[in-house]
Simulated assay, not measured.
Amino acid sequence: MTPISLVAPRKLLIGGGALAKLPALLAEFGLSRPLVVTDPWMVSSGTVERALAPLKGAGIATSVFSETVPDPTDTVVQAGVEALRAGDFDCLIGFGGGSPMDTAKAIAILAAAAPGQSMRDFKVPASADRAALPVICVPTTAGTGSEATRFTIVTDTQHDEKMLIAGLGALPLAAVVDYELTFSVPARVTADTGIDSLTHALEAYVSARANSVSDIYAQAAMRLIASNLRTAYAEPQNRAARAAMMEGATLAGLAFSNSSVALVHGMSRPLGAHFHVPHGLSNAMLLPAITAFGLEAGLPRYAEAARVMDVAPAGTPDAEAGAMLLDELRALNEELGVPTPRAYGIPQDRFDSLLELMAEQALASGSPGNNPRVPSTAEIIALYREVYGN
């Protein structure tokens, strides 16, 4: 039997009000000089004060790097490294959605790099196993799962490519997962990040690299997300739904960090890089069609996912359960207002002109190779055309 390799943060604090324990968490690890990595909106809205206030109250001096952009770029990461080196810091705190957390991870990796190395040197299949400083993640959305994964995504601005960076250097030391931070999240973000987390769990479950432990995380995540996403979207102040979504997103992160994502993510990254579609939304655009593409090849797993999500009753035959899963994913996109790339405003001529490059970039990421049905370049192009929305 091949040994199972598992990774996870050393500590996860999960639950309402957990953010108040951030100073104590730092103290447990002997840390006291954090650089907080966030984005401009978190600063202008005052949301970052939710993290800064307890730190200041505990006498912990903080500095803030807030140049993070929605799709983290290598240039922003380099600026973050310079900010890190300009001060005397012993850790990084990634506060916000996936972008600030991914940026904090990438800063830690690049700050440990040899002279002359760039983020592109750490692109998969390279392994980014060293970090200059530990990273603590504080997610403010229930979606990316970045607080629990060994991955970060960075856009190479020269090649207009979203690069998957993987390794122990990207694994947070700890995370504070406080669902109270999601009460003010807009409905669109709730929908997109929610479907993102469902995609993480489903792809981890059907991936060729799934294992018995990642399955436990994935199943638990699918149960929580499937039964609470619509409520969190329709009732943003519903504490039980928000708590379930936050826990589900973290469990989904643990699932795919210990398994892998697959074709949806492989095709999602080029869509985001070239057209600046938010990551969760690009996953949502793709999920029904990509699931249909791989359904027959991975039918037992997809069918069991439908039963776990309570989309299909226990005992439903696989073929019927798989069809019910597809119906549910399509209905979810419709109910949560997920647009096609066409409806999103992506011009068809530019979309068509980039199809071959996007397909090549998707395959180069390695994620499509984990799919139940591994696609050719031509099949990826055909899937992009189908998803576009003609």
Rank of each mutant, 00 (worst) to 15 (best):
T2D: 13
T2F: 12
I4P: 00
I4D: 01
V7S: 14
A8C: 09
L19A: 03
K21L: 14
L22V: 13
A27C: 03
V36W: 00
V43Q: 05
S44Y: 00
G46W: 05
G46I: 03
V48R: 03
L55T: 09
G59L: 07
G59S: 06
S63C: 05
S66F: 07
E67K: 15
P70E: 07
G80E: 11
L84A: 07
A86Q: 15
F89E: 02
C91K: 05
M101C: 06
T103E: 04
I107W: 04
A108T: 02
A112L: 06
P115A: 05
G116A: 01
R130L: 12
L133S: 10
A142K: 07
I153E: 02
T157Q: 08
E161V: 07
E161M: 10
K162P: 04
L164A: 15
L164P: 02
I165S: 12
I165R: 12
A166S: 15
G167F: 10
A175I: 07
F183M: 11
S184V: 08
S184K: 13
V189P: 00
T190N: 09
G194K: 11
A201V: 05
E203L: 08
S212A: 15
I216K: 03
Q219F: 02
A221V: 12
R230D: 13
Y233M: 02
A241H: 08
A243F: 06
A243I: 04
A244W: 04
M245E: 06
M245V: 12
T250I: 06
T250P: 02
L251W: 09
L254C: 05
G266P: 00
S268I: 01
R269S: 15
H276G: 00
A284W: 02
E304V: 03
M309S: 03
D318V: 08
A321D: 09
A323Y: 01
A323P: 02
L329R: 05
R330W: 10
A331C: 01
N333W: 01
L336Q: 04
P339H: 10
D349P: 02
R350K: 14
D352R: 12
S353Q: 10
A362I: 05
L363A: 12
S367I: 01
S367Y: 11
P368K: 11
P368A: 12
P375R: 07
A382F: 00
L383M: 13
V387W: 06
